[in-house]
Design a protein around this nucleic acid. Structure first.
Lengths: 160, 160
DNA sequence: CCTGCATGTTTTAAGCTTAAAGCATTGCGG
DNA sequence: CCGCAATGCTTTAAGCTTAAAACATGCAGG
């Protein structure tokens, strides 16, 4: 029994869901690859570094490594390494948390804030450019449907 | 000037595009993380291995490393390493290409084909489950709009 | 108080990923 | 036929990523 035949026997919607997922993944990969390339060429940095700076930029009071790990949806060991490198480059600083002696609090340095502002401005432009052929209506509708998809995924992850 | 103020001065649509991208990325990451987890737990394998087997499954006559690299949208050095590991596990085989002595041709072994059939069946089910709350209409519309997004991205990548 | 579980972080080993440099073969234009 | 750019693959160094194990601190209930 080949793949085609299997799909014919699968519950209705299986084939559609698979095609939808592959297209979603293609879009995400195309954008992500291009963003990584531009970050490297124009700012000699990487996407995870940019994402960590972005998280700190949105939280001026600082974040613990665990906070960052949850926001970025990556493992906490991962954040340890990223933070070590960014600290060595002088873009962020680690401070002992006054209230919890197990925790550090990460903050942008002045240099880090300046650097992120430059990168962030460029980043916004790149995304607007890549999605620029969509009309405002299409963007709104796509945003709404992706919200529905997100709900479906979270629901499915929470229930089992 | 803070991030909020900057966005207010950006061309119209910039803010929407950014939000759209973040939501798209969230959906892709949620699904991908779950698929990686299940491949590891249920089949002791990884997503790139699965993707390489899938590419070969769709092309019974075999693919060169370069073909695979283009289809998977990854570097060719990457495929070298993956193929080496999968060959060591007996799931694929490398054959000298009869027509081009620089190239190899990768094929699934019988064992690899059996193993991929099991994984593929499960994979379809996982995706259908994760996107199961969407109606057929929502899936179709989302697929269509992602097609528009894909065109916009490719257009933008091709023109500069 | 103290026991035990939860939380915050780091370390380790393994695998994935890339860009760049390098080697071999092909194929084309002169 | 010769030179040489294009193509196919591998190697290397660096960084990213994870799960699992380890260790410290916090906290709550007995």
């Amino acid at each position: 029994m080949d793949a085609e035949t299997q799909l014919a026997h699968a519950p209705p919607g299986t084939k559609d869901s698979l095609r939808l997922w592959l297209r979603l993944l293609t879009c995400a990969t195309l954008i992500e690859t291009e963003i990584r390339r531009r970050l490297r060429e124009e700012f000699a940095t990487t996407l995870p570094r940019f994402d960590l700076l972005a998280a700190l930029d949105r939280n001026g009071e600082g974040l613990t490594l665990g906070d960052v790990s949850r926001r970025m949806m990556v493992s906490n060991g991962n954040v340890t390494g990223l933070a070590t490198r960014l600290e060595a480059e002088g873009l962020i600083e680690r401070r002992l948390d006054a209230e919890d002696r197990r925790a550090f609090r990460l903050r942008l340095t002045a240099k880090g804030a300046r650097e992120f502002a430059r990168q962030s401005r460029a980043h916004e432009g790149w995304i607007a450019e890549l999605l620029g052929e969509l009309t405002a209506t299409e963007r709104a509708e796509l945003h709404r449907l992706l919200g529905r998809a997100k709900s479906s995924i979270r629901e499915s992850l929470d229930t089992p």
